[in-house]
Computed example of a mutant assay.
Amino acid sequence: MKRQKKTKKKKSWLKIISITLLIFLAAGGAYAYSVYHSLTKAVNTMHTPIEDRPISEKRQKEIAYAQKEPFSVLILGVDERDGDSGRSDTMIVLTVNPDTNSVKMLSIPRDTRTDIIGKNKVDKINHAYAFGGVKMSMDTVENFLDIPLDYYVKINMEGFQDIVDSVGGVEVNNDLDFSYGGDHFPIGKIKLDGAEALNFSRMRYEDPRGDFGRQYRQREIIQGVINKGASFATLTNYSTIFDALSKNIETNLTFSQMNDIQKHYRTAAKKVEQMEMKSTGKRIDGIYYGIVSNEEKQRIHDELKAHLELK
Rank of each mutant, 00 (worst) to 15 (best):
L22M: 15
H37Q: 13
E80S: 14
K247P: 00
Y238A: 14
V96H: 01
K15I: 12
Y216T: 14
S107N: 13
R219M: 13
I108G: 02
P148V: 03
Y36N: 15
F232T: 12
G286K: 09
R110A: 06
P109S: 06
I190M: 06
L25H: 01
E309G: 07
K41S: 13
V172W: 02
K124E: 11
E142M: 09
D89H: 11
I108Q: 00
K121W: 07
L25I: 13
R204C: 05
L308E: 03
N174F: 05
E51Y: 11
L149K: 03
G28A: 13
D84S: 13
I222H: 00
T251K: 00
V103P: 03
K61G: 07
K271L: 10
Y31A: 11
I261D: 00
S72D: 04
I221E: 01
K189V: 10
D211E: 14
T280W: 04
I190D: 05
P49N: 08
D123G: 08
Y31S: 02
Y151P: 00
A130H: 12
I155W: 01
S107D: 07
K282A: 13
I155P: 00
Q60R: 13
Q60Y: 12
E250N: 13
S231N: 12
K68L: 04
Q4D: 15
R209M: 09
A269G: 12
F232Y: 14
V153Q: 01
D111I: 07
M105L: 14
M277V: 06
N252C: 07
